[in-house]
Design a protein around this nucleic acid. Structure first.
Length: 376
RNA sequence: GGGGAGAUACCAAAGUGGCCAACUGGGGCAGACUGUAAAUCUGCUGCUUUACAGCUUCGUAGGUUCGAAUCCUGCUCUCCCCA
């Protein structure tokens, strides 16, 4: 994998870059749609690619391990072939499930023991096993197995958690170096900075990770309950330290405003379930603001969903029709909303790249943050 | 014509002397959602701009009672069965 830093903004820390993988190039800053179990929920791969213009999507090691399972994935020849997606894939390690499924797991030095959320069966995830699983999945970017601690945890917990994550990281890197890709394409391995909301822990984590010299670096454990200002502060602290010649990935973030603020602070890659999940729940993000399509106010608004929208659905269907679909609980509602939101997110980062290139990113970002946080 | 059952909030439907402004479901209105256990979850839904407050409601008109959606009487309407 190659990362080319094309331009750094003069007024902000925004960066324009390009990541080259064996499955194609990625223009950064980029947003990566989440397809946890090998599907960007509600959207055909064809549309993820051709309508939404996603350049890379996510999969999840924990979920894919439970279903369909590594044996079948290997039989299929990896996730790319299985799901018919030939652009890059990044897999999360299951570290987020340590957080989101915390009631169903126990942490030990060795790893995380999960009780499957599907059938209760027990499964031990170790840093080594998670590398092996991601080799089988065949993702272009594999993530280290980490503990994502809650955003409001105390210093003692955060320190112990970080220590464990760093020990797991070294074991993961070791396994990564000892193993080879199974399907002939190169796989990167990204470490994840942790340290909750504590500056010195974040600095220590970032410093240690920078020294590893991996292909790219991630910032985890943010947008998990801490105030948004703390998240921004932590990004700044970490990006002071992470190498500039490697892409930086802010995991799980976020709202359109979060993404613009992240880009401004030197983040290159983002992912979030928000465009799809919130879309399925009726929330549309647009360049003019946020719409709750279930609201009565759209009942007889026959104007296009989003006159400036980037997806075909935006001019194809009206607000009134989409509201009707939501009220009637039609599957198409969530599909349209997801397509719209993802296309908007991809459009947003595309515009960000354009404005970094043109040199007016700072002004554009200020204006855009106001617009995307407006309630329509 | 004879016999029986019933009328409760937007709809359906509980409640049959005080704990009832009234269970529950639907509908309606609004909110939440950030490396997806989510096409999920939460709140409100008689009126008074707020309320541990007040006011008006359970077909309708009266009555009994300290107190009635609940008991009694008349009336109106609906449904079912038999002729």
């Amino acid at each position: 994998m190659q990362y080319k830093l094309i331009k750094t903004d003069t007024k902000t820390n925004a960066r324009l870059g390009e990541i080259t993988t064996d499955h194609g190039t990625i223009q950064t800053p980029i947003f990566m749609p989440v397809g946890t179990v090998g599907s960007v929920k509600g959207i055909h791969q064809r549309d993820v690619s051709d309508d939404i213009h996603a350049q890379i999507i996510l999969g999840n090691t924990y979920h894919l391990y439970l279903r369909p399972g590594p044996q079948l994935l290997q039989q299929a020849g990896g996730l790319h072939k299985f799901m018919h997606w030939d652009k890059p894939i990044l897999t999360d390690s299951g570290g987020f499930q340590v957080f989101s499924l915390s009631a169903n797991r126990k942490l030990t030095e060795e790893g995380a023991k999960f009780s499957s959320h599907i059938d209760g069966s027990k499964h031990l995830f170790t840093p080594e096993k998670v590398v092996d699983l991601q080799r089988i999945i065949g993702s272009d970017i594999m993530m280290a197995f980490d503990e994502c601690p809650p955003g409001d945890c105390d210093y003692n917990y955060a320190r112990k958690s970080l220590d464990l994550t760093m020990r797991w990281l070294h074991r993961g890197v070791e396994r990564y170096k000892q193993t080879e890709p199974l399907y002939g394409h190169y796989q990167s391995f990204f470490p994840i900075v942790q340290g909750a909301s504590f500056k010195e822990l974040r600095q220590r984590s970032a410093t240690e990770i920078a020294e590893l010299g991996m292909d790219g670096n991630a910032i985890g454990g943010l947008a998990v309950g801490e105030p948004v200002e703390v998240m921004y502060a932590m990004i700044e602290v970490v990006n002071e330290i992470l190498p500039t010649d490697k892409p930086r990935y802010l995991m799980g973030v976020g709202t359109p405003a979060n993404i613009l603020e992240g880009i401004s602070r030197g983040v290159d890659m983002f992912d979030c379930v928000m465009p799809t999940r919130n879309g399925r729940n009726g929330m549309l993000f647009t360049s003019e603001g946020i719409m709750n399509m279930k609201n009565n106010k759209w009942k007889d608004d026959f104007s296009p969903i989003d006159p400036c929208g980037a997806s075909f659905v935006d001019l194809y269907y009206s607000k009134a029709y989409l509201r009707h679909l939501f009220v009637s609980e039609e599957l198409l509602a969530g599909q349209i909303a997801s397509a719209h939101n993802l296309a908007f997110y991809l459009w947003l980062v595309g515009e960000a790249r354009k404005h970094i290139a043109e040199g007016d990113f700072a002004e554009w970002k200020e204006m855009m943050v106001k617009k995307v946080t407006t309630r329509l």
